[in-house]
Simulated scan of single mutants.
Amino acid sequence: MSPSSRRAAVAFLVRKHGVSERRACRLLGQQRSTNRYRPVPGDFEKRLVKDMRRLADAHPRFGYRRVHALLLAEGWPVNVKRVERLWKLEQLRVPPRRVNRGQKAGGTGENSAWALPALRPIHIWSYDFVSVRLVDGGPLRVLNVVDEYTRVALGSHVARSIGSAAVIAHLARLFEQHGRPEMIRSDNGREFVADSVKEWLAGQGVKPVFIAKASPYQNCYVERFNGSMRDELLNGETFHSITEARVVINGWLEDYNTFRPHRALGMRTPAAFAADALAHPKTSE
């Protein structure tokens, strides 16, 4: 007896003798899942695939599970395994997620410290970040700005996070205090290449110059300063708060500029070298 014949016999027993489907199937040796199976029309999967593709095109970020849920909502009597099988056969897939990594690196080796050197005080500044942590593990960022010719540390901004707006605010304070450089050198960090920073610098008459990607040695003056700060201060200090970090770092900057002899300046301090360079511009090099 074929499964379809058994299916008819089960229906007869249920209808004629009032027995349950379970008992009728047991008497006839019919699996209940087989008995409940309903033949699928010949074009069922063709129409299903058509609707599945329609939904996938309309919702390109949806996978087969969400598409299956939409098919159910539209009245399709189909389980998720069939949708998954057809999804693979049709080679449907969710496109890879696009990650916005911000501005692309636009620097070049022509903007390195040796290819484009500072020739006098307030000619070229450079800036970069150094990171540190509080005792409780909280992150801190320090934005350092250095005059490349005199090696003077112009100022450090300390905060938990520093975005482009904070970069602009810090530079504005330094411009008011020290004057505006002709150029400012940096890497291609997103805070430095942000359109808002570049537009603000253009309005101040300052040209941003970007070193080549992944070439921190091309921004050697601020990198060397950051290394000194880490070696002489950050590695030996523990900070319990942002306020404490600001006070200690600003105190170290004062010593760096006015007390610490600098080998590249003939063991003069940056402040003394800067004063001499401004007083005797022709003989200061």
Rank of each mutant, 00 (worst) to 15 (best):
W200G: 00
E191Q: 15
Q177E: 15
E182C: 04
I184W: 08
R180L: 09
R173P: 02
W200D: 05
L201F: 04
N188M: 10
Q177V: 13
L174C: 06
L201E: 01
L174R: 00
I162L: 15
N188A: 08
A166M: 14
S196G: 00
V167H: 09
G163C: 00
I168G: 06
E199R: 15
L171W: 11
F192W: 13
P181M: 05
W200C: 02
A165G: 09
I184G: 06
D187Y: 05
R180F: 07
H178R: 12
H170P: 01
G189M: 13
V193K: 00
L171N: 01
G163W: 08
G163D: 14
L201Q: 01
L201P: 01
A165Q: 14
D195Q: 14
P181G: 09
A194D: 02
M183F: 12
Q177A: 15
S164C: 13
F192R: 07
G163S: 05
A172D: 15
F175Q: 01
F175S: 08
A202Q: 05
S196M: 12
H178A: 08
L171T: 04
P181D: 09
K198C: 09
E176P: 13
W200V: 03
A169H: 08
S164T: 11
A165T: 12
R190H: 04
A166R: 15
R180D: 00
I162E: 13
E199P: 00
A194I: 06
D195N: 09
E176G: 15
Q177W: 15
A202R: 10
R173W: 14
A194P: 02
H178W: 14
R180H: 06
P181N: 11
A202E: 10
E191M: 05
R180P: 03
R180K: 14
E182I: 02
R190Y: 01
N188F: 05
L171V: 06
L171K: 02
N188E: 10
L174N: 01
R185D: 06
V193E: 00
H170Q: 04
F175C: 07
D187V: 00
L174E: 02
V193Q: 04
G163L: 08
I168L: 08
D195K: 12
F192N: 07
S186T: 14
I184L: 12
A165P: 05
M183Q: 11
A194S: 02
F192E: 08
L171C: 06
V193I: 14
G179I: 10
E191G: 06
L174T: 04
G189A: 12
K198D: 04
E191H: 11
Q177P: 01
K198Q: 13
E191Y: 10
S196W: 05
D195Y: 06
N188W: 04
A172G: 10
V193M: 04
L201I: 08
F175Y: 11
G189L: 10
Q177D: 07
R173G: 13
V197H: 01
V193H: 04
M183R: 13
L201M: 03
R190L: 12
V197G: 03
M183K: 06
